[in-house]
Amino acid sequence: MTRFLKATGYAVGLPAILLTAWWFGSANSTNTFWPPLSTIIETFPTTWTWDRIVADVFPSLARLGIGFGIAVVVGIVLGTAIGLSPTLRALSEPVLEFFRAVPPPVLVPIIALFAGYTGWLGKIVTIALGCLWPILLNTVEGVRGLEPTLTDTAKSYRLSPWRRLVFVVLPGTSPRIFTGARQALSIGVILMVISELFGANRGLGAAIVQFQRSFAIPQMWTGVIVLGLIGVLLAALFKVVENRMLAWYLGQRQIDRGE
């Protein structure tokens, strides 16, 4: 119980300090662009009504989920194939290096040309493409870095390619896949917002831009806070999934390090 309290204390401590600083620092602010925190908090419930959440937050999150999901599936499938096949690797390496070097937001206008500015398609493609690279590259590295003794063991017991994939390659690569997915998730959140900045449409990012353009500054700040909260929530969710799926890895690492 004390451990739980301590952990909660640590988690809440710094945000509390920052909020307090913000509160008093902005208390007497007359600057339109830096409204007092009290004003921002007052505006919050009237801005983020259930209707707005349904109209703006949910579609954004849905696009993020679909785009991220596509990236995970495609990244793992392609990454495993490239990692296992030296020929594929030799073929794809220069292309992968090229696309990795291109910052994902640059893709937004290009994709919009093909998939449209306002619809879901362009945004999902943007998110999926941005999320793909870290997952793909980490999967390739993970497959290549598989412990050779494990591969030999699988071979010597004549495991079929299918069993090797499901019981050896994928679980062995999963720590790296998670590393890639974690990076991809933060890129995904950024692209979720950026993909909504162009053209008029609904969504969390679009809402923030609209508030800004209509000088609804406190409302704009609440949007930023909502974004931050979503980030925290997603990270926590990711941690839960990771702890569950990588329990063996985390346990083993703990023992190896003697923690």
Binding site: T149, L150, D152, T153, S156, V168, P171, S174, W248
Partner: peptide, 15 residues
């Protein structure tokens, strides 16, 4: 069947 020297690395840690 083969038993390798590196027992720590021949067993599947996720199983």
């Amino acid at each position: 069947a083969v038993v390798f020297q590196e027992y720590g690395r021949s067993l599947f840690p996720w199983m």
